[in-house]
């Protein structure tokens, strides 16, 4: 008696969004099934992996990353090396130094850096702001202007600054707008509605619906993504059909499991392995719940997740 398969293929699909230009451009989304459910219908665009670099260079990075990028003198060098990491489909430059409550680098300085990095790397570029909503309103708008024609994804427009970021990135300079909300399906939808009302086309929007490290409130991430995908596919909700991009690296390397020193917890073993496993387990869980792209730090994590994706698609 064979098993009667009941495929769960939907009439609706996740919106496709392209990032980058030319031969190296990537396409996110397009699937009409749940994450990795290739037994229901083929998934044309496999989830993608980004590699994260910071405007602060290696200053705030864990020891293993300092080692990996040893010899790189500038952020541009680091970005160039990152772009060659096997399995990395795009480069994500974080402008954490722009935070007014932190180093508070000027917009001009950061925009100059973005330009240099954009010229130096041949992979699609994602630029993440300082996470300060006021600063990002200005900073990301200027970044959008400076990288016009490169089809960059800007992370992120939030409820507080979507008008500035959305108008500059999505309308004036035709880049891709990242819409960031806090682990809640209604907030995610609301922001997409606002952005489209502003005139941004749905196929120019990706969402970050929130992330956490595994073990740190991650159940909300799972449920938010599960519900977003169900609404997008089963109910055909066009305002939730944007692909999901999840920055994982900046969530996981600071938590205790990854960051505690070997002197403090000798029984836990090498810190590098702990960081990698925290990163791959969190990334795998994000992908299983619906991320169309994850952004990671460590080359081994990237190789591992890249292999997992290849095996599953």
């Amino acid at each position: 008696m064979p098993f009667t398969k009941k495929a769960q293929k939907f009439n609706a699909a996740i919106q496709t969004v392209e990032i980058g230009t030319g031969d190296n451009k990537i396409t996110l989304g397009g699937e009409n099934v749940f994450p990795f459910y290739t037994f229901d219908a083929p998934i044309e665009n496999a989830p993608k992996i980004g590699i994260e670099v910071s405007d602060m260079g290696l200053e705030n990075e864990p020891a293993c990353m300092k080692e990996f990028y040893a010899g790189c003198e500038t952020v541009v060098d680091i970005a160039k090396k990152a772009a060659t990491v096997e399995g990395a489909d795009f480069v994500c430059l974080r402008l954490e130094g722009g935070d007014p409550n932190g180093v508070n680098k000027s917009t001009e300085e950061l925009v100059e850096l973005v330009k240099q990095v954009a010229d130096a790397v041949d992979k699609p570029l994602v630029v993440e702001g300082s996470k300060n909503v006021e600063k990002d309103a200005e900073l990301l708008a200027k970044v959008a202007e400076a990288t016009q024609g490169k089809n960059v994804l800007l992370l992120a427009a939030r409820e507080e600054n979507y008008k500035n970021v959305g108008a500059a990135a999505g309308l004036a300079y035709d880049q891709v707008v990242g819409a960031e909300s806090a682990v809640d399906i209604n907030l995610a939808k609301q922001l997409n509605v606002l952005l489209t009302q502003l005139g941004v086309k749905p196929e120019r929007i990706c969402m970050n619906v929130g992330a956490a490290a595994a073990g740190y409130g991650f159940e909300y991430v799972v449920s938010t993504m599960d519900r977003v995908k169900a609404a997008a596919l089963a109910q055909g909700d066009a305002m939730l059909q944007m692909p999901i991009v999840t920055p994982v690296g900046d969530e996981v390397w600071n938590v205790k499991e990854a960051a505690a020193s070997e002197e403090d917890v000798p029984e836990w073993g090498p810190a590098e392995d702990r960081g990698i496993d925290m990163e791959v387990e969190t990334a795998a869980a994000c992908l299983a719940s619906g991320s169309n792209a994850v952004i990671l730090k460590h080359p081994v994590s990237i190789a591992t997740i890249s292999k997992m994706i290849k095996e599953l698609i």
């Binding site: 490290a213 595994a214 073990g215 740190y216 991650f218 996981v252 499991e257 029984e267 836990w268 073993g269 090498p270 392995d273 702990r274 990698i276 496993d277 925290m278 387990e281 969190t282 869980a285």
Partner: peptide
Amino acid sequence: MSYAQALPLYGL
């Protein structure tokens, strides 16, 4: 099952 694997897994 190393601690590296276990800590995030059991937390998840």
